[in-house]
């Protein structure tokens, strides 16, 4: 989970932006309530998306509350419900295993930060794993498989992406309605595939420098992390096929009040993020935004 899944908030009406903010704050609050302050730091856009997808789509009143991140101004915040708790539990499990993955990927010194953060998150993880043992088990299995594929330099990007995609699809297993479960599994599978591939594309240059495993570089035989026009085009197409699968799955279930946000993400937001990653402008845009936000917060 890397924060690539974003609705085009700037293009949406104020009402939709507020709704997205409320679920973001709601997930943060649920994490805090269930797992303590440390767990709040794992919050990101992708987990927020998971909370939206798992939600029943019923519009709920979002009372304004104060939180540690914004002590001065009260914010609208979706109240915790079953779906939000499920999203929080699954987020903690995913975040924890990703940190452990970071520990395994680095030597003792460079793994230090992963080790210390995962230590902090460990009590939360234990609780979440006890609440969702099946999801914990499948996450662990898929990530083990992923790290095996990485060790053996697997040149099939589909196979590598499958390990992560299947992991995310596992988040739908706790859903009861069989149709909804099929729709969500398909949607999350391709969302996972897209996230994994976009992340690999985003890391092309960095991995070329460090010599780390990169499935996209191996698949297209890219040198120095630079695209050729053909490989870039081919890669964009494979992303589009996954987005098409997400969009077609999305249309088969009623997501209620989340319809506009989800629709704009699947039919617009993902294209734009993918395009920016291919152009190499995504990281800069995110960094600049953060910088500007810090300046605004300070003043």
């Amino acid at each position: 989970m890397f924060g690539y899944v974003r609705p085009p908030l700037g293009q949406l009406p104020e009402e939709e932006q507020a709704r997205f903010r409320a679920v973001y704050c709601g997930l943060c609050r649920t994490l805090g309530k269930r797992y303590g302050l440390a767990a709040r730091f794992i919050l990101n856009y992708d987990f927020t998306f998971l909370a939206i997808l798992l939600s029943d789509g019923q519009e709920r009143e979002a009372p304004c509350v104060r939180c540690p991140a914004h002590p001065l101004k009260k914010r609208a915040c979706c109240p915790p419900d079953g779906a939000m708790e499920l999203a929080a539990d699954e987020s903690v499990i995913l975040a924890y295993w990703q940190l452990r993955d970071g520990v395994a990927d680095h030597d003792w010194l460079h793994g230090l930060k992963y080790r210390s953060v995962s230590k902090v998150l460990e009590p939360a993880y234990r609780k979440a794993a006890a609440a969702r043992p099946a999801f914990d088990e499948s996450t662990r299995r898929q990530l083990r498989q992923l790290s095996e594929l990485e060790t053996e330099d697997c040149a099939s990007m589909d196979r590598a992406a499958d390990a992560f995609a299947a992991l995310l699809a596992g988040a739908a297993k706790e859903v009861d309605d069989p149709v909804r479960q099929r729709v969500l599994e398909q949607l999350l599978y391709h969302l996972g595939r897209w996230i994994y591939l976009v992340d690999a594309a985003d890391d092309l240059k960095k991995d070329a420098r460090s010599g780390n495993y990169n499935p996209v570089a191996l698949r297209y035989g890219l040198k120095d992390g630079a695209w050729t026009p053909e490989s870039r085009h081919d890669f964009a197409q494979t992303l589009d096929h996954s987005i098409h699968m997400m969009a077609t799955a999305f249309e088969l279930w009623d997501f209620g009040c989340w319809r506009t946000i989800l629709e704009s993400t699947f039919y617009t937001g993902l294209f734009y993020v993918g395009g920016a990653v291919l152009d190499g402008t995504f990281q800069t845009a995110v960094r600049n935004r953060k910088k500007r936000k810090n300046v605004e917060d300070a003043t």
Binding site: D240, I243, A285
Partner: peptide, 20 residues
Amino acid sequence: FGTEVCAANSMCLPLWCCVL
């Protein structure tokens, strides 16, 4: 429909819409 079509089209939304 498509990543390249949308990214190349300046009529599409600017990136800041997504990183707001």
